[in-house]
C-alpha cells in the first residue's frame, strides 16, 4: 500500500473509531496527562501496525487488540512516574451541574461511578468488561484476547457480579452521606 493510501485508510479508521479509542483510554488512564499520553501511544501503534494489517481478522478485532495491548502495558510502564492517587473522579472535568438538566447530571454521575468501578478491576478483568461494554460477542472477545469462548463467558459472569457489587457499595456510601 502506498503512503497516501495508508494515510487515507488511517484517517478513516480513526474517524470511525475515535469514540472507541476515547473510551478505552478513559478506562485505562488514571490521570488527565496519562489520558493524552495513552491516546497518542494508541494512535502511534495503530499507525505503525496498519501497514501489516492483512485483513485476516475483522477491523474491530484488530483495533481492540492494538488499543488494549497498548493500554495494558502502558500503565505498567508509566507506573511510578506519577503518584498513585485515585484521581479518577477528580480528573473528570467538573461541569456546572446547575446548567445541565437533572437527567444529564444523573447520567453523568452514573457514568463516573461505572468508570470508577471499572478502574477498580484487575487489568485483565477490565479489558474483558471493556470489550463487553463495547457490545462485542463472546466469540469476538475470545478473538481479541486469545482466551477460549467458554472461559470468556464464565469470567465475564463473575466480573459483572463484581462490578454490580462495587456499584451497589458505592451507592450505599453515597446514601449514607449527610
Amino acid at each position: 500500500m502506498n503512503p497516501p493510501d495508508l494515510e487515507r485508510r488511517f484517517l478513516e479508521l480513526i474517524e470511525r473509531n475515535e469514540a472507541r479509542i476515547f473510551r478505552i483510554c478513559r478506562a485505562w488512564a488514571r490521570h488527565p496527562a496519562d489520558f493524552e499520553d495513552l491516546r497518542s501511544e494508541v494512535l502511534l501503534q495503530l499507525w505503525r501496525s496498519l501497514s501489516s494489517f492483512d485483513g485476516r481478522s475483522a477491523e474491530d478485532t484488530w483495533l481492540f487488540r492494538v488499543a488494549l495491548n497498548v493500554a495494558m502495558l502502558f500503565r505498567r510502564r508509566e507506573r511510578g512516574r506519577r503518584e498513585r492517587l485515585d484521581l479518577f473522579r477528580r480528573r473528570v472535568p467538573e461541569r456546572d451541574a446547575a446548567s445541565q438538566p437533572g437527567e444529564q447530571v444523573e447520567s453523568r454521575d452514573r457514568l463516573d461511578r461505572l468508570t470508577a468501578a471499572i478502574a477498580g478491576l484487575d487489568p485483565a478483568d477490565r479489558a474483558l468488561v471493556t470489550l463487553q461494554l463495547e457490545d462485542l460477542s463472546y466469540a469476538q472477545i475470545a478473538e481479541v484476547t486469545g482466551l477460549g469462548e467458554s472461559h470468556v463467558g464464565v469470567r465475564l459472569h463473575r466480573i459483572r457480579k463484581k462490578l454490580a457489587q462495587a456499584m451497589a457499595e458505592d451507592e450505599e456510601v453515597r446514601d449514607a452521606r449527610p
Partner: peptide
C-alpha cells in the same frame, strides 16, 4: 451470546453513549 441482565445492558448503553469532553 446469552442475554445479559438489563442493568448491564443499561451500563453498556451509558458507556457507549459517552462523548469526548475535549
Amino acid at each position: 451470546m446469552p442475554a445479559l441482565d438489563p442493568e448491564f445492558d443499561a451500563w453498556g448503553s451509558l458507556w457507549r453513549g459517552q462523548s469526548r469532553p475535549i
